[in-house]
Structure formats: C-alpha cells, structure tokens
C-alpha cells in the first residue's frame, strides 16, 4: 500500500533499490554527475530504472523539475536513453544477452532545452 501520495509507486522493492541511486546521483544538487554515479546508472537493473522513472524522473508530481534535472545527469553519463522513461525501457529493459535489441540507438548527444 502506497505510503505517500507524492510517490504512489513507492513499492517496498523500490524503497530498497532506490536510495542508493538517489543519494549518489540525484540528491547532490549538481547537474554534473560523479564517475561513481555514472557507473551505478549504467549498471542499474531494470527494476531500479522502473522505480526511478515511476517515482522520480517521470513522477507527475515532480517531473517538471526532476525531469530536466535527471535528463542533464543521465545525458552526461551517456545513459539518457535508458532513463528516458518513455516506456521503451520502463520495466522491460533487456540489457544483457538478447539478439533483438530495438532500443540500441546511439545517444551521444541529446538536444538541450
């Protein structure tokens, strides 16, 4: 049962996997991510991606602020596509194995604002 109306998707599982990334990457107040943060973002599981999307990046309650902020961080880490929260990677991300990857486009540079 959700504990907060602001974070309706905060499941116990999310509560377990989110703090690490939140603390390391999104609670710094800086749009320049650390190497440690980028490493974790790159190795984050689909569960973590889904939780971050649902509760933070694309959470309607905060996405107007966290969206651009997260975008800046994930873009700099080169993982914007993974955290685009557009439904392509949300929850169903397959990053290991698998010969049919439909989400493998290069995202070296994304547009600004």
């Amino acid at each position: 049962e959700p504990q907060s109306t602001m974070f309706p998707e905060m499941t116990p599982e999310c509560a377990t996997v989110m703090p690490d990334l939140l603390e390391k990457c999104f609670a710094t107040g800086s749009v320049t991510p650390t190497e440690d943060c980028c490493t974790d973002l790159k190795s984050a599981t689909s569960t973590q991606v889904t939780c971050l999307c649902d509760n933070y990046i694309a959470n309607p309650a905060v996405s107007n602020i966290t969206g651009p902020y997260s975008k800046a961080i994930t873009t700099k880490c080169g993982v914007f596509d993974k955290y685009s929260c557009d439904g392509t990677s949300k929850g169903g991300e397959e990053k290991k194995g698998g010969s049919s990857s439909s989400n493998g486009k290069d995202n070296g540079k994304s547009e600004g604002n």
Partner: peptide, 25 residues
Amino acid sequence: GGRANSVAASMAMFGLLASLVFVMF
C-alpha cells in the same frame, strides 16, 4: 538553473526519506 537543481535535489532527498520510511515499516 541552479535553483531548479537544488529543488530537484530536495525532491530526491524527499524520495530518499520516503523510501526509507517505507523500508522501516
């Protein structure tokens, strides 16, 4: 801008706390 970033950081901290609260209960 920097202000929005700090707000976003605050949101993250809030989320962090929310998740911790969830874990505790």
